[in-house]
Design a protein around this nucleic acid. Structure first.
Lengths: 237, 237
DNA sequence: GGCGGTCCTTGATCTGCATCAACCGGTAAA
DNA sequence: TTTACCGGTTGATGCAGATCAAGGACCGCC
């Protein structure tokens, strides 16, 4: 929960060589614009559990996630937590119209971000409708994901929740790093519980049950999807 | 659940006189642009429970809600329903990047919308970054609402859910029509249940309990907030 | 090696909400 | 007027998942 105090190093490597550019907002930019953007951003690194920004903090920056995974969550006054999403490389964070962040974001494992001052980024956007369109696209995709998640939270059983989560998470990783049967789970069981609206015990029990039923194999830090068809049936029904 | 087959009448009244313009996307437009827009849109009316567009239907149009209330919902194959939101005048619907709608929308009571063909609206936007920015703004507001709702669905008790719903709904109506203690509830108990991730019985019981506790007064089609402070305490905690 | 800590799993019990079922009041059709 | 229906309420019971409690695996540290 420490807050990083470093300003970050300038973007050294040209944005044109950025590995996740095609997934990020920057996909909308041409070479000249990328070079311009290089001067505005700073690379910052966070270690596991460090907070990138907190709920109610002023929104001074926007962030482009380069590497690692982040949890985005809201806390109720009494400590109950709801994780509203996990961010992966290419995700664009801190885009909000309000003066304060409406959720907190912290690192799950080591994280690298590209940080931009909100004002300078806003100025950069101003005459670039294609970039604005790209940002809009990402926001709408995020909204659609949020709506899907509402269905999950409001109307699905624990088993359905877990199965759906594993499949969706796998799909996002496949998108990024290509096909693979084994699904890394860098987040803790508590994180998964707080994402799915369950308790850690129920998540653990459900994992165990899925393993007993030979749907998944549990490994430290990951699971292996053994019976995708059955998992999909659980997630769909 | 009938589908309206009428093409709709042309927008007669000038958009400049539109009562909800300041709440809608059109707030971003100047007089000349409004006049241009008048030629692109059609007014369409729907009666109660008519479907404006359905999940999986092709996204041929976008809609500006002028009058009335709509429920936006997703259905699971087995019939479980999650209402992802209620739309009020000024809300902009059908904005999606995908070819098909990801949820259904139907009228709660009589509804009037301004419909635009998706392609002609896209063309209209093209050289109007201020409009795009406005759309982006609405999308981000919607996303933020969705995230709040995830917390409600995942982490709150039935009583908290109902209290929060009543307060939020009141706030949206106040925004639109000014202060009032009595909160109209045009949607059914089943709608409220499907919005809050509860059953109709639990919603009904919770309403009754809040009435017994003198927090609300139940009237046909509306409730009266008697003890706002206590309701807010329930919603916050 | 022993110790404390964190994360995860497992078991026993409890409970909030779902489910099942009946009923009530208003309205519209017969 | 009677009947049927629909939306809402209320009561009795059941159960999925929460809560409480304990123990195991793994880690870094002394």
């Amino acid at each position: 929960m420490k807050i990083s105090l470093v300003a970050g190093e300038p973007i050294g490597q040209p944005c044109a060589d950025c590995g996740i550019r095609c997934f990020s907002v920057c996909a909308a930019l041409d070479k000249a614009e990328l070079r311009e953007l290089e001067h505005l951003g700073r690379h910052i690194h966070f270690v596991s559990c460090e907070t990138v920004f907190g709920q109610e903090e002023l929104t001074t920056s926007v962030y482009n996630l380069l590497e690692g995974v982040m949890r985005l969550y809201k806390l109720l006054p009494d400590g109950r937590r709801q994780i509203v999403g996990f961010a992966l490389p290419g995700d664009f964070l801190g885009m909000t119209t309000s003066a304060r962040h409406s959720f907190s974001a912290d690192a799950i494992g080591a994280v690298a971000v590209c940080r931009f001052s909100r004002t300078s980024f806003a100025r950069f956007i101003e005459d670039k409708p294609h970039l604005l369109r790209r940002i809009n696209e990402l926001a709408i995709r995020e909204l659609s994901r949020a709506q899907d998640h509402m269905v999950l939270l409001g109307r699905r059983s624990a088993e359905e929740k877990v199965a759906t989560f594993l499949l969706n998470w796998r799909d996002r990783l496949v998108q990024l790093r290509g096909p693979a049967n084994t699904v890394p789970l860098p987040m803790s069981r508590q994180d998964i519980a707080d994402f799915l609206g369950l308790t850690i015990e129920t998540v653990s029990r459900t994992f165990t049950k899925l393993e007993r039923d030979r749907v998944i194999g549990i490994q430290p830090g990951s699971v292996c999807l053994l019976d995708t068809a059955r998992a999909e049936a659980m997630a769909a029904a």
